[in-house]
Design a protein around this nucleic acid. Structure first.
Length: 235
DNA sequence: TAGGCCATCTGGTCCT
DNA sequence: AGGACCAGATGGCCTA
């Protein structure tokens, strides 16, 4: 495993349960999410406990529940790591050919930190990546359409590229910019819509502010993550 | 030292 | 009944 700064794997320690379980049993109404049944003990806060359990049974049950939850979160982290592996080339490469490599999903001038992506950053970047792929696909379809029309050739363009089969952005709100275009727009996030119309299409209604840059501070990426409505991938 | 990020525990809710 | 999922609480580690 890699050991990027700020990255750690917490060891499994089943003994960690020991000081926790008594807390649950001995401190009525402690911890948890502020349920209204304060005063009842541990896992049996429901109005009618199904059946009596000994202290050992309670502890065993709590161990099982904790273990399941731990496993669930670990599985989630495995999936998150798998997603990171896809995003890592775009998040942690310090250099590229001929000098620094611009992060394709971070605004120009914002260097990758070299640290492991946080969960939220991973999700935001992955989302932007998907949007970019969709835009690229759309652009490719458009170019292929022009080529096929210019050549007077029908049926030679892969059908999936022309007719769809994968969600993508349509209309004038294309987020795809060529590298040269991106460089011309230094200082702005390359994924930002460039016009009011694009703004409306990309962010939908109810976006948060007039600032062109995401205010979340995660990656200074587009505001799409704050849009209330489901991301539009019109067919 | 404050803030960010994370793992874990815990109780509640929903589903099978 | 048991498992999955969720969100709040808590505490540890790390970085600026």
């Amino acid at each position: 495993m890699h050991a990027a700064p700020g990255f750690r794997y917490r060891e499994q320690r089943e003994g960690f349960l020991q000081p926790v379980i008594p807390r649950m049993v001995l401190v009525p109404g402690s911890g948890g999410s502020g349920s209204s049944n304060e005063g009842l003990l541990g896992p049996f806060r429901s109005p009618k406990p199904p059946r009596e359990l000994s202290l050992e049974e309670q502890q065993e049950l709590r161990r099982k529940i904790n273990s399941r939850e731990r496993k669930r979160m670990q599985d989630l982290n495995v999936a998150m790591d798998a997603l990171r592996e896809v995003m890592v080339p775009y998040s942690s490469s310090p250099t590229g050919v001929g000098g620094t490599l611009q992060h394709p999903y971070l605004p120009p001038g914002v260097p990758p930190t070299g640290r492991r992506l946080s969960k939220i950053s991973t999700l935001v970047l992955a989302r932007n990546y998907i949007l970019l792929l969709g835009s690229s696909l759309q652009e490719m379809r458009r170019l292929l359409g022009e080529v096929s029309i210019g050549m007077g050739v029908n049926g030679t363009v892969p059908r999936v590229l022309v007719t769809g089969g994968w969600p993508f952005l349509t209309g004038q709100g294309q987020l795809l910019l060529s590298p040269s275009e991106q460089q011309l727009r230094t200082g702005k996030c390359p994924l930002l819509p460039q016009t009011a119309q694009e703004e409306s299409l990309a962010w939908g209604s109810g976006s948060i502010s007039e600032s062109p840059v995401c205010q979340c501070g995660v990656c200074q990426s587009p505001r799409v993550m704050h849009v209330n409505s489901v991301t539009g991938f019109p067919k």
